[in-house]
Design a protein around this nucleic acid. Structure first.
Lengths: 147, 147
DNA sequence: GCTTGACCTCAAGTTAAGTTGAGCTTGTAG
DNA sequence: CTACAAGCTCAACTTAACTTGAGGTCAAGC
């Protein structure tokens, strides 16, 4: 089959389902990278699709772009990441994910823990007080979900 | 023991762990309510603590204030919500939560589905394409997590 | 009866994650 | 070789969820 062609932004946008402007944005944030043609247009290698897919999935479960960017630092810069590379990455996220999963289950299972417990006295509630390290950090809007 | 005293904002803030400004904000958004003293100061009934606790937990798992507000509509206005009321509420959230939990598990379990699959062709990926109804809706920042 | 720490309101600022638009350049199909 | 869709940059706008600040009011203790 044909050698792996480079992709234009438009093509990546279409195949990944994210807007061109979002791709520009991800690039500015260091989440993806591109080469440029002599005429300064972006050309992406095929594995950008993988990256974008991961970005979207991670976002969907509440991981911020900043965290994703940080995690992506662990990926090899010049080599196309292998399955192993990706697995390392998700392993790094595992603890945060585990915690989030358990929080979700509790909420799903009727909030009963929180309702039955001494929720009134916040410091005793198993739901609330499980990670208040996600506490203050700077001003403005808070991240919706903890790492 | 003493009759259930009403709480001031400061007290609620301290006991719930959220800032006074946030309580004002939640009230403006219709998530909590207060009575006022003759001098126009807020007085909260004790169950506001429960509400705030639920708000925080729900937020932590990615439910937006708007959704929480909507869900709270189902709570009785004048009667203090019973455990049953709260359970109804979380039942209403169950589907969204179930979906989110499964997404999280997939991400946690090595992203392998996504990596092994035809992720490149986005429309086939089990991770990506499981709910793209969370798609476009208005401009500006996107909600981090789907309902 | 006054002082001092809570409160109150309202406007403006902040962060994240993008989108929109203006003005200008590329590249490809006819 | 030219038209025009697709790109490029940069600045400004948007939403959610709060925080900060200014300017003024309450209330509880001494």
């Amino acid at each position: 089959m044909a050698p792996v062609r480079e992709l234009t932004v438009g093509q990546v946008a279409m195949r990944s389902g994210v807007a061109v402007s979002a791709l520009h944005f991800y690039e500015a944030r260091g989440l993806i990278r591109s080469d440029r043609t002599s005429g300064n247009q972006r050309r992406y290698s095929r594995d950008v699709l993988r990256r974008v897919a991961i970005i979207r999935v991670a976002q969907e479960v509440g991981i911020s772009l900043a965290e994703i960017a940080a995690a992506f630092q662990s990926l090899p810069e010049e080599r196309t990441p292998t399955r192993e590379d990706w697995n390392l990455l998700s392993t790094a996220w595992r603890d945060g994910l585990d915690h989030k999963i358990s929080q979700l289950k509790k909420l799903r299972d009727g909030l009963t823990d929180c309702i039955g417990c001494g929720c009134m006295s916040i410091d005793k509630c198993p739901l609330r007080n499980r990670d208040d390290r996600l506490a203050r950090e700077g001003t403005g809007a808070r991240r919706l979900i903890a790492p």
